[in-house]
């Protein structure tokens, strides 16, 4: 962020994926430059050689045009397909979130980034991350569509209201990097910027514990009662509702015979769109909490559900200090 513009132009970025994106980008630049150079050269040659009144030989073409046409259709198609595969390969790796990634919640809101770390530490417009860890951001939005853009990490993802989307990166250099909102979100769109601070894992662990850390899971438990979730879901209950112990991280059987992995998205959907995925053996009787629960309450509720004993209890939230 503090480096002058031109130096940044040739930087290799600050995440594990950045060099791969750059390699593709510069290859495209090179290929384009060659194409442009050839075309300019050909055009100029023809324009000068065949200007009206020049002595150059004219007359009909001796070769059939279709051979030329077929050649350049073939060559461009092959070239394009090559770049397609390259781009898609890197993209699929960018989209494949590592299983043990360290998760941080990021909520976009007009016009700020509201960030919560796993231990409850909250910060605005500033994101502290440990160096060398796979960091997964769970993006959501409270109002309109925002977009999380970290140019030095070559990472961008829209935060869409009504859903949670994952994006991940692995910082490879300590430092302070810019963060922008790139989806137009209203008046102060251009001020919805921030900083990403990449710290050594130790420094990050220290930073995590020095700030105020409300126990969000505890707050989530209170909300669980406040929104009357407990009335049905706490056992025993009059109403036949699926118990919530051992849910997070398990494969849940659904009414239509399929299974769904109970990750963050599933928990969120189950609260907001309960009839979308009905658990086998239960009726779709749960009311939707769409528009009832605020985004921030929702995160706390999910945190509480995740804090319950889970199927994979042996693998709790990875501790942040571990490299």
């Amino acid at each position: 962020m503090n480096r002058p513009g031109i130096a940044a132009f040739f930087s290799s970025g600050a995440s594990s994926v950045a060099p791969r994106v750059d390699a593709l980008f510069w290859s495209l630049v090179l290929a384009s430059a060659v194409v442009v150079a050839v075309l300019v050269l050909l055009n100029l040659t023809f324009l000068i050689r065949y200007r009206r009144g020049s002595p150059a030989r004219r007359g009909p073409l001796e070769v059939s045009t279709w051979k030329f046409e077929a050649t350049w259709i073939g060559l461009t198609t092959v070239g394009f397909l090559g770049f397609f595969f390259w781009g898609a390969r890197v993209y699929l790796d960018m989209e494949r979130v590592p299983a043990d990634a360290y998760s941080i919640n990021v909520v976009g809101r007009q016009w700020m980034w509201d960030i919560r770390h796993p231990n409850g530490r909250r910060e605005f417009d500033e994101l502290h991350v440990p160096l060398g860890r796979d960091v997964r951001l769970l993006l959501s939005s409270e109002d309109v569509i925002h977009s999380f853009f970290a140019p030095e990490f070559r990472v961008k993802q829209d935060a869409v209201p009504g859903k949670t989307v994952s994006v991940w990166f692995k910082p490879t250099r300590e430092g302070v990097y810019p963060l922008y909102c790139t989806q137009y979100c209203g008046t102060k769109h251009s001020q919805m910027t921030g900083r990403i601070v990449v710290m050594s894992p130790d420094a990050y662990a220290a930073w995590l514990t020095c700030g105020p850390t409300p126990r969000i899971a505890e707050r989530g438990r209170e909300l669980f009662t406040k929104y009357s979730c407990s009335g049905c879901h706490d056992q025993p209950s009059q109403i036949h509702a699926p118990p919530l112990l051992n849910v997070y991280g398990s494969m849940v059987p659904l009414q239509d015979g399929t299974f769904v992995y109970a990750g963050d998205e599933y928990l969120r959907d189950s609260i907001l769109l309960p009839t979308k995925q009905v658990v086998a053996g239960y009726q779709p009787i749960m009311p939707s909490f769409q528009g009832v629960v605020s985004e921030s309450d929702l995160l706390d509720l999910i945190a509480y559900l995740k804090s319950l004993p889970t199927a994979a209890s042996a693998a709790p939230q990875p501790s942040p200090a571990a490299p």
Binding site: V21, L24, V36, F80, W86, G87, Y91, R154
Partner: peptide, 19 residues
């Protein structure tokens, strides 16, 4: 047109989209 190819390349588009 050539820069359109950049934008069609998924990984590059992620970086330059909306810029």
């Amino acid at each position: 047109g050539l820069t359109g190819i950049f934008l069609a390349s998924l990984a590059v588009d992620v970086h330059v989209h909306d810029t």
